[in-house]
Design a protein around this nucleic acid. Sequence first.
DNA 1: CTGAAAGCGCTTACAG
DNA 2: CTGAAAGCGCTTACAG
Lengths: 331, 331
Amino acid sequence: MATIRDVSRESGLSIATVSRAISNPEMVSKHSLQRVNEAIEKLQYKPNLSSQKFRLQRTNTIVVLVPNIANLFFAQLISGIEDVAARRGYNVLLGDTRDSVTRESEFISLVETRQADGLIQLRPHDDDAPLPDPTIKAVNAGGCAGTPYHSVRIDNIEAASKVVKYLLSLGHTRIGVISGLSNNRHSIDRLQGYKQALESAGIAYDDEIIVEGDFSLWSGFNAVQHLSQVANKPTALFCMSDDMAIGAIKGLKEKGLQVPEDISVTGFDDIDVANYYDPALTTVRQPAVKIGEKAAELLLQMIEGETPKVQEYILPYELISRESTSAPKRV
Amino acid sequence: MATIRDVSRESGLSIATVSRAISNPEMVSKHSLQRVNEAIEKLQYKPNLSSQKFRLQRTNTIVVLVPNIANLFFAQLISGIEDVAARRGYNVLLGDTRDSVTRESEFISLVETRQADGLIQLRPHDDDAPLPDPTIKAVNAGGCAGTPYHSVRIDNIEAASKVVKYLLSLGHTRIGVISGLSNNRHSIDRLQGYKQALESAGIAYDDEIIVEGDFSLWSGFNAVQHLSQVANKPTALFCMSDDMAIGAIKGLKEKGLQVPEDISVTGFDDIDVANYYDPALTTVRQPAVKIGEKAAELLLQMIEGETPKVQEYILPYELISRESTSAPKRV
DNA sequence: CTGAAAGCGCTTACAG
DNA sequence: CTGAAAGCGCTTACAG
């Protein structure tokens, strides 16, 4: 492979001049520029950016830690990140961590070993987790309250409370929950929102109708099997992801129940399929792409040496009412 | 940040010895090793892998070109790639190209500029597209017949033909198609399979019931609007992706049609939600994870200097029959 | 087992 | 506008 030295030899100019012709053409005479370009063309020269990065101590790469790449909410968020990164000349290294601490720290070490300039964490912060090394530029996207570094997210507690209040307003008083893993911060915050809504309506919290899932289709389906055992059955189900809502509806249908006629179901995220499911899902729309864009802007700002004034950017969510909810049946 | 020179100074050993203690501990005396490790610990030293890569002219990074990261089939394929890559110590740089030629060539240039060792292309090869530079190590995954470089895929023609024959065997004789973009190779191959199946049954091809989509939910929904205009309506629909099948079913239901009672619908890929939709989708299961694993193995083999014997790996698919298909109604 | 030295491919302050 | 030279942080053949 041709190197800058070959171009220098071919053009009869020093490597310094060749380097300038490439990076700062205005510093070089037209004549030299021409000769350099001819040599580059002839030799099919491509600069070794790995060398350049090393020399400049800058990688123009950011890493994104994704708990699960097959989750459409994350996919959308990532497109937002990529748009901004690409526009600013950064590459995005995607780390599919699958909730494995080992894999996650491998990706973090990309930053520590200077193969990347910073990272965006998509997993909500976990209080037990060690703080990220403060010398590492990091932003949390789509996470929760209490993240101890820069973050971009919606207000999960409020959003959850809003959906549940909506169900209450339809007349439901017995509202079940299919949550994510119980130690996941999203589960915790959204459950808190649920409790707040119940409390404001003077309804007692009953953990018999709270079932733990893991945000997946399967876990929603499975949760319904548990719920069908309880004596005093809910007339509505608040699911903490659209996937779980879909799984749950599938399970309910298999038990011969109609949604929303027999039981209302709500999701969370508003992934594409939410609108195409039957019934179309009532859900909370997170501004996934915007969260990604904002997080990327924030990180690039930090990488470029600025200190963002705001620690937390809270973006607006939206309650989308579709077909999966209605007033409870009169008995 | 501490460099190897700092560790050398701290430990009182040469940088050569420090380097060896890190990369080849067995070449160094126990005593030296101990002193180096103490110094590393004390200084919180992390080797600059960007420098190391440059020095070794190896990046241990592969890039994966994904047409659309929000497509679950790709997401699964990518997990297969990542598993193998991680196990072998490679990083995966994900390039979400969104079918943009510009973005794609930016990612390819990562390999040309030696920031990555090779690439896996997830977009099916397009005959008009320039051949990849033969000096670049590249593998196509999940693509189509006629890819001019190494590839791992299913036999799309045969798989499509098999689904259509299945519909024929149920008694359907008027089978519509919702295809991907008509210049996409997957669309071309699967349409060919469709034609073969019709031909073997002595049924004439009628392009009035072939509608072009783009593999998305929305395009499936939209295609149904077109199909509802034709005089002689199909009793079954062969959709070239699960997303389009779901979109189509949603559209049919809105027109008051029952699936499969009034019309049968088949998908392609078998993404997770296929089994949770109502009705659950009859579809072709592509071994997405396996395709990814095999493609990664192939690429790493090439990067490490071997020449794979086989140019094309054809993996088995599976026809999954669920609830979205049945015999046509007697009229 | 250890160290001095060359070199990977670039960029850039310095001198002219 | 141009070139010689130093240096980014490592690895490794060579000599001892």
